[in-house]
């Protein structure tokens, strides 16, 4: 597997000092939540979680902020990895393996974690949701047989975990792997007729469900670079007018990334992100993954991929996987 740095490199060693105040403050805040075991929690003082830890690493690395803290976070993630390569939400709940793609992001470009990352990738490739022939199109409108990824083992595949898995395969250069191709087809199949994505159903009893901005944005992010724009235009047309109304970090963060991945990152991104950060005065501190996602969205010039040195490419090593 080819190594690529996680971050966009900047020549200025003092880059971290150039980070604008609200974003620097956010980075310092999430850094301060790191626990002695290297992991990060959702909120200060809580137990560390793999997904929160991965997001902390991705965002801090993107800003070249405290590499030592990131390294300790990567070690924590490795300590949470099961023998089969999965990284679950808790060791006590191996079936909840949806954070595995996030760990793949966090380990990207670090040779000491190549083996851990490779095992995680192998796990993803061998892992799928519960799929079955579509029983009756008048009841369930999507193709239930196309392989994707579930949130939890032995359940159906849904939009967000499939998108995360696709992104992880793309980051390690497996965007043309058969599982990645199937995942893209699955997302296209789950796209709503009028644009956007729900959590993963299209029609139920012939009624089309409502699109959700957070699911639509992450699906757009996952399909960028591998799908012709004509196939998702209606979803871009749905999400773009939604953007000015999005204030919460998950939906805004993914919307900025998803649109950015298609070259549509708005010029006022930082303004939107600052407004979102200010909402914490109303709602209290955001959970770490939300905060980190927002920071990534500010930093990424063209979607999540641009936090990596190069766009996903096949490599000789990765192309041998099947």
């Amino acid at each position: 597997m080819e190594y690529r740095p996680l971050i966009e490199l900047h020549g200025d060693l003092n880059f971290s000092l150039m980070i604008q105040k609200p974003f620097r403050h956010a980075l310092e805040l999430l850094q301060s939540w790191q626990q002695p075991n290297g992991g990060f929690p959702y909120h200060s003082g809580e137990e560390a979680r793999p997904d929160a830890t991965a997001w902390a690493i991705i965002s801090m690395s993107a800003y070249e902020f405290d590499p030592e803290s990131c390294n300790r976070g990567r070690a924590y993630l490795a300590s949470q990895q099961a023998d089969d390569g999965r990284v679950s939400i808790a060791l006590s709940h191996p079936e909840a393996s949806w954070p595995t793609p996030l760990a793949i992001f966090a380990w990207e470009s670090f040779p000491q974690y190549q083996e851990a990352q490779s095992r995680a990738v192998d796990y993803l490739i061998g892992f799928t949701g519960r799929h079955f022939p579509t029983p009756d199109l008048s009841i369930i409108g999507h193709d239930t047989a196309i392989l994707g990824w579930p949130w939890i083992a032995d359940t159906h595949s849904w939009v967000v975990p499939t998108s995360l898995a696709l992104l992880a395969l793309q980051v390690v250069g497996l965007s043309t792997h058969p599982r990645a191709i199937a995942g893209q087809q699955m997302l296209i199949n789950r796209q709503l007729t009028n644009g956007g994505w729900n959590f993963g159903s299209t029609t139920v009893f012939r009624r089309e469900l409502h699109p959700l901005p957070e699911c639509s944005a992450i699906a757009l992010q996952a399909l960028a670079g591998t799908t012709p724009i004509r196939e998702v235009k209606r979803s871009l047309d749905y999400l773009l007018p939604e953007l000015p109304h999005l204030r919460t970090p998950i939906s805004l963060g993914w919307a900025l990334l998803g649109l950015g991945a298609w070259g549509l990152k708005p010029a006022n991104t930082e303004e939107l992100a600052r407004a979102s950060l200010q909402l914490q005065e109303r709602y209290g501190p955001y959970p770490l993954p939300s905060l980190a996602l927002l920071l990534c969205a500010v930093k990424a010039s063209h979607g999540l991929h641009s936090l990596f040195r190069s766009l996903p490419q096949e490599t000789p090593a990765s192309s041998t996987r099947n």
Partner: peptide, 19 residues
Amino acid sequence: HRHDTLLVLEESGLADVLY
């Protein structure tokens, strides 16, 4: 159905009442 819980609170109108 939605993992953006804060958006759920905003869209439902509950956020204003809670605040």
